[in-house]
Design a protein around this nucleic acid. Structure first.
Length: 308
DNA sequence: CGCCAGGTGCTGA
DNA sequence: TCAGCACATGGC
């Protein structure tokens, strides 16, 4: 069991902001897999089954795996990042200020790039609930089973396992039209034609253009992988929710993903990706469906919802 | 039942 | 280069 100091950190905001899909909350604890990258683990790293809780500024990580180290935990949760300084650089307007105020402590995880790539291929034209279900079934079908603390789970499948699966079986897991994309991309990674480990060391533009060669990977998914898996903090994934947040800045002006990204970089700077996560989480949770079943906001209408 | 979801690939102008 | 369209599926 580990007790890790975690100043300026929110476990809940970090795990529930949509950057990761597999953590499960039970009685205030989060169960899941913590991916660690060490040279001894080979090119794709490995994952540790853990239970995580936060009490104040202390993170408690419980595991049955003796190989886990405190530095893996600190690295995965990005506790080495000076969050206060990052937030200071992006806290440049009223909307982001609101978002930071509400979700302060949210950090961009350092996830396993392959899991990230595969997961966000599944995310296209989809909703988070179903994405979670699809990924879970994928893990049960092709991942190694692991039990810990009375909790059963499966590791995320290796690229080879998915590359060797049939498209029919992948579709049977509910992947829909994403099945062929995922299989093709898994093949690319399994054959070493796309080295995610290398991309972590190259700059944003280069790694993004490499990701865009994968089937099922467009601008948005490439930015998600760059940000959540490759530590490219200038990546700014633009989805329908971020378009709504962007309406606050563009007003009547026409928006395209490219223009939004250019704006974000200019407006928020080098850590635009952090701003993206705060905005995404903020806008998605505006007026959450309590007794009100109407959608929180409609397309093109966010500017009036700032003071919630 | 109808609309929407952390979009992408393809096509035709 | 870019708007318009099909794509599978299930949550709400």
């Amino acid at each position: 069991m580990f007790k890790v100091p975690a100043q300026d950190f929110s476990l809940a905001a970090t795990l529930e902001c949509g950057q990761t899909f597999r953590w499960q909350r039970r009685q205030g604890a989060y169960y899941g897999f913590l991916s660690a990258r060490r040279t001894s683990h080979g090119p794709l790293g490995r994952s540790y089954a853990v239970k995580v809780t936060q009490a104040g500024s202390t993170l408690t990580v419980d595991t049955a795996d003796p190989a886990l180290r405190a530095e893996d935990i600190q690295r995965y949760f990005a506790l080495d990042i000076d969050l206060d300084r990052v937030l200071q650089t992006i806290d440049v307007d009223a909307q982001i200020h609101e978002a930071i105020g509400r979700y302060r402590g949210l950090r961009v995880l350092r996830q396993d790039p392959w899991e990230c790539l595969a997961s966000f291929i599944c995310s296209s034209y989809n909703n988070i609930k179903r994405i979670q279900g699809m990924i879970e079934r994928l893990c049960e079908a092709y991942g190694a089973p692991l039990a810990y603390n009375g909790f059963r789970g499966c590791a995320f499948p290796a690229p080879e396992a998915i590359a060797n699966a049939t498209e029919r079986r992948l579709r049977a897991l509910g992947l829909g039209f994403r099945a062929s994309y995922l299989k093709a991309t898994a093949r690319l990674v399994a054959d070493g034609k796309l080295s995610l480990e290398t991309l972590r060391r190259t700059d944003y533009r280069v790694s993004k253009s490499a990701l865009l060669r994968c089937e099922g990977v467009g601008e948005k998914v490439a930015d998600c992988v760059a940000l959540f898996g490759l530590e490219k903090y200038e990546a700014f994934p633009v989805d329908v929710w971020i378009e709504r947040a962007a309406r606050y800045y563009f007003r009547q002006a026409t928006m395209t993903p490219t223009r939004i990204h250019e704006f974000a970089w200019r407006h928020f700077g080098r850590y635009a990706g952090y701003a993206q996560q705060y905005l995404y989480h903020y806008v998605r949770n505006l007026r959450p469906a309590a007794s009100d079943q109407r959608p929180a906001i409609n397309k093109g209408d966010v500017s009036s919802t700032l003071s919630v």
